[in-house]
């Protein structure tokens, strides 16, 4: 879909007051959510980003180091492999692992350690090597 076509679709949605619009074909998925600002997500299978975001899967307290260890589980800039534990989510006496979804380097921490996080809260960015 061309950018101009996308703009036209957005105008139609605005006029028809349709809040959420999603269209999917074999090779492309476009999702438009009206709002301030309107968000447009395009997924055509190609990954143009420099890395991936690791998000929390359960509510709890975000920890970058194990309470009995000194220093972080993985330092910023450290190498990780897919499946590595990179942080913990503490839920009462449970420490649930946060798992790296890809190989790369731990580029950025996106949430303040010790903060309460919920499902989908972005925690880390892992940059591809």
């Amino acid at each position: 879909m061309k950018v101009e076509e996308l703009r036209q679709v957005m105008r139609w949605l605005e006029e028809a007051r349709i809040g959420v619009f999603e269209i999917e074909s074999d090779d492309c998925r476009v999702r438009i959510v009206q709002g301030n600002p309107t968000s447009v997500t395009i997924d055509d299978g190609e990954d143009r980003s420099d890395g991936v975001i690791v998000a929390a899967e359960a509510p709890g307290t975000f920890l970058v180091q194990h309470p009995q260890h000194t220093g972080p589980i993985v330092p910023i800039g450290g190498l990780v492999r897919a499946g590595d534990v990179v942080a913990l989510i503490q839920i009462g006496s449970i420490y649930a692992p946060v798992i790296a979804s890809t190989d790369g380097t731990l580029a950025k921490i996106l949430t303040v350690p010790q903060a309460l996080v919920g499902f989908g809260t972005p925690l880390f960015e892992i940059a591809y090597q």
Partner: peptide
């Protein structure tokens, strides 16, 4: 997967 998920609700209670 949210309001009808007992485990998620109980984890949220524990976490908060």
């Amino acid at each position: 997967r949210s309001y009808l998920n007992p485990a998620a609700l109980l984890l949220a209670a524990e976490a908060t």
